[in-house]
Simulated assay, not measured.
Amino acid sequence: MLANAFVDNAKVMAKGQITIPKDVRDVLGVSSGDRVTFIVEGSTVRIVNSAVYAMQMLQQEMAGEAERTGLTSEEDVMALVKELRNEDGRG
């Protein structure tokens, strides 16, 4: 097992509900009202913080987009921002 790995468990209640153990909530960075995502891969299930997962998926989808549009340096990005600000009259 990994050095930072641990095992915890929870009981499934009559309606299929479980309480996520505090140590696991702490690792996920979730608290009351937050959402978690279940990722099922075969017979293995991962539970992740939904907000973090959504950001990771967005980052994966956007990977390489800047280069595909010709934004290859910070100067290119700054020039685009300046152009956009001038177009909307707030420059």
Score class of each variant (00 low, 15 high):
R85Y: 15
D8L: 08
N4W: 11
I20N: 04
V7G: 07
P21S: 08
G29M: 07
E61K: 10
V45L: 06
A54P: 03
V77W: 09
L58T: 05
L84K: 13
R85V: 15
T37I: 08
A14F: 03
K11D: 12
N86S: 15
G64S: 09
E65K: 14
S43Y: 02
L71D: 02
M13E: 12
E65H: 14
A79Q: 13
G16H: 12
R46I: 07
L71Q: 03
D8P: 01
M62A: 13
I47E: 00
A79W: 08
D88R: 15
A3M: 13
V7R: 12
E41P: 01
D34E: 10
K15R: 13
V24F: 01
A10L: 12
V77T: 12
E74P: 01
G91A: 14
E61A: 12
S32C: 03
V24L: 03
A54L: 08
G70P: 01
A51T: 13
I20G: 01
F6E: 09
V48A: 07
N4S: 14
A63W: 06
R35G: 14
E41R: 02
G89M: 12
N4F: 11
A14S: 07
G33N: 03
A63R: 11
V52P: 03
G16T: 11
V12Q: 08
S32I: 02
